[in-house]
């Protein structure tokens, strides 16, 4: 009962952000939407853990938060540099 409104709202948020991830139109819109999805999934997870009565499992949400950042930065680094390791600029035709 305490958690119901928040869970419903977060699920709606997830669905709306997914729509943006589908629509695009650019890769950045998708990456932004997925970043938001990661944040919302993290919140949803924290709330669900409280709902199931195991608040000490919030570590999971922490891992999510960290991975969300890693994923976003990896996508962007790849998109800017064309590689994850060393800087080697690629021509725009290939990336589009």
């Amino acid at each position: 009962m305490i958690y119901a409104p928040a869970i419903v709202a977060l699920l709606v948020t997830l669905a709306l952000a997914l729509v943006r991830a589908f629509l695009g139109p650019t890769l950045f819109d998708r990456a932004l939407a997925v970043n938001a999805i990661g944040t919302v999934a993290m919140l949803l997870l924290a709330v669900l853990e409280f709902l199931t009565g195991r608040p000490e499992y919030t570590d999971l949400a922490l891992v999510y938060g960290l991975l969300n950042v890693v994923g976003t930065i990896a996508v962007l680094k790849f998109f800017r540099l064309g590689d994850l390791g060393h800087a080697s600029p690629v021509d725009d035709e290939e990336m589009r």
Partner: peptide, 24 residues
């Protein structure tokens, strides 16, 4: 690229569902 980004979203949602099913 869109597929890779979306599969990231897929994983986040999947993991949330798994956590809701008590498989931490």
């Amino acid at each position: 690229f869109g597929v890779v980004v979306l599969s990231g979203a897929y994983s986040f949602i999947m993991a949330t569902a798994l956590a809701a099913l008590d498989a931490a």
